[in-house]
Design a binder for these strands. Sequence first.
DNA 1: TATGAAAGGTTGAACCC
DNA 2: GGGTTCAACCTTTCATA
Lengths: 155, 155
Amino acid sequence: MRTEDLDELDEFILHELQGNARHTSASTIAEQMDVAASTVRNRIRQLEDCDVIRGYPLDIDYELAGYPLHTIILCTAPMPERETLAREALDVSGVVAVREIMTGEQNVHVSVVGTDHDDLSRIGQDLNELGLEVVEEELIRNEYTQSYQRFDCSE
Amino acid sequence: MRTEDLDELDEFILHELQGNARHTSASTIAEQMDVAASTVRNRIRQLEDCDVIRGYPLDIDYELAGYPLHTIILCTAPMPERETLAREALDVSGVVAVREIMTGEQNVHVSVVGTDHDDLSRIGQDLNELGLEVVEEELIRNEYTQSYQRFDCSE
DNA sequence: TATGAAAGGTTGAACCC
DNA sequence: GGGTTCAACCTTTCATA
């Protein structure tokens, strides 16, 4: 499946699933678009098969789950090892996400949750030992996400 | 529910649901922990009710979905308006996530997807018009996420 | 709070248009 | 590609300990 194959139904399915993927049934989506439920199921499977839908993660409130500290650790990785180091960073305990940045000095951003400051120090050390030079830490205050929508330029 | 109420079963449920929330049934989880399926359902409901589980988003490959450009726009917001502006930024077409940063000059990070460079320029303008001063843009090359796990310090 | 049972909804697969 | 059918599975609800 390629980009141009994403039609209105696909877009609608993505939008409906976003935010409530576990409790939104194919039938409910099907009713709204006036198609058969199996059509929606087929589409969802196709979207999964071609990796447009990569997965169904959980949106966890880490603060309520016992991790009051949420920070971004900005790191510098030697260019040839950037991808390898980014993947390895995922294995450090407390790391929840890693982003590779195309350009600039701070080319790996590591999202981290921790219980206290010692926890964060330990994570910083672990990243350093991997070979990621820690440049800066930014404490996250809040995070908001948007549902999928075909971003129409006419809006 | 408070932090200390998260026991081993809750942790396990969070871990199992992460990554496959839509296709992981309560029964499957129940078997692995040797409890009744209804027990797992009750726990999931509790985790949802107390907002430890905030939702079930979709992990979309925006590149495959037709948005090859994925960037972080670093912005500066006047402190008193930071939260309001962060929430408003979500409504800009193309914005997929917003983070409020506690300290520093670049105190609002906006995750954006776009079809081309014009698209990104337009988004930058929109953010500026809201009152968010665009400081820098960072092109994302890749992104990896980690499943939930109780981050044991002994690891 | 955990469990079990009955009823109703949801899913996946095979088949047809 | 979309639709129908059906068996298997999942979930909801409620009663029980």
